[in-house]
Design a protein around this nucleic acid. Structure first.
Lengths: 192, 192
DNA sequence: GGGTGCATGTAATGGGTTACATGATTCT
DNA sequence: AGAATCATGTAACCCATTACATGCACCC
């Protein structure tokens, strides 16, 4: 909801543009689907927080361009002044790793290799985005965009370090188990 | 849903215990509310994936103790074999920081100081949990629990480094702005 | 007496994803 | 010819949180 207002302070955009912008710039820490964007823009327009004008294009369908209104800016700054609440963490990879003793180590190894791969390409994307921001220093928002990008860089690098360390650990376990019985069958504790 | 099965491989537990265990051990990367736990246990029992027995207690209300069944273990290992999908990121702090130019820098500074504070105490908790795990090396799950805990340590330390760096940056900005006009009023780009 | 912890559950509500529907253009 | 991109929207559905409801015991 308020992301849309925030992005519209940068420049007037269509719902489609907003979706693209989200994926391309803040996608690392925030996401919204079109099934969310379009209805929310309607609500915002009904509340007078954004105004819309239709733009005709040859060939392509019409675009509804939204601009933030004075009331919209007010709503945005009010929202920005509310302390962010910590989200509920949901890391399926870690959850599955936590129960990794129930399956062959190779499964966990595969997951972490995949994760490391995807984080490496994310780092590339963020570094490129950071350079892009650095080139546009005149924007008053630029320093803030840079800080958000830095978060991604630092976090992803940390994840990669963890992935390396963890892969080494898992491979040790896999070595011991190799040619051994099924997982989850070792001596149990507290079983009754 | 499947978290419950996973935790029940450690030992039979009540819904309440499951909630406590989640908060106390995997709370850093996974959470479930009681409004989720109780109905899910019912469904699992109806599907024969867990079995329940009632335990009477003096004074306190009865406890329903759930144990995982053979079918439950099967379901769990099947689920563990499905590659985890990356979750949709939702970091409200970063989102608000991203739009930080719209408000006074002190607001962003406050948020990050709060965050750093809470991460510092999380690190304490995780380190203590890691020591606890290290003391119980005999559990076959222990190495996996340790890896999950390490993730928390590494990530939180990275967050703290970022927080330090970002606070320094923000304080520079706040210094320049001090006694200056409202935020978000500087020269705009692409305004029309 | 009142707050907190133990203990289990249901219902309302909200947030969000996915799938569906439509249609033209451009690229392979 | 078919896939991908541009472009907007709706509806079904799922998942999850919050609030509500109940009740005993223990501590301050």
């Amino acid at each position: 909801m308020e992301v849309l207002l925030g992005l519209l302070t940068i420049e007037p955009m269509s719902g489609y543009d907003l979706g693209q912008t989200i994926r391309g710039s803040i996608g690392h820490f925030w996401n919204e689907s079109y099934g969310q964007i379009y209805p929310n823009l309607k609500k915002l327009a009904a509340d007078g927080l954004v105004s819309a004008k239709t733009e005709k294009q040859k060939g392509k369908p019409e675009r509804r361009i939204y601009s933030i209104t004075r009331e919209g800016r007010e709503r945005l700054t009010n929202w920005l002044a509310v302390p962010p609440q910590a989200e509920v963490p949901r890391n399926e990879l870690l959850l599955k790793l936590f129960f990794g003793a129930q399956v062959f180590p190779d499964i966990s190894i595969g997951y972490i290799e995949r994760m490391a791969e995807s984080e490496r390409s994310s780092i590339q994307l963020i570094k490129r985005a950071a350079e892009e921001i650095a080139r546009n220093q005149q924007y008053p928002d630029a320093p803030y965009w840079k800080m958000a990008a830095r978060f991604g860089e630092i976090e992803l690098e940390a994840h990669l370090r963890w992935a390396e360390e963890t892969l080494a650990e898992l491979k040790k376990i896999a070595g011991k188990r190799r040619g051994n019985a099924e997982p989850g069958k070792e001596k149990k504790h507290a079983s009754q």
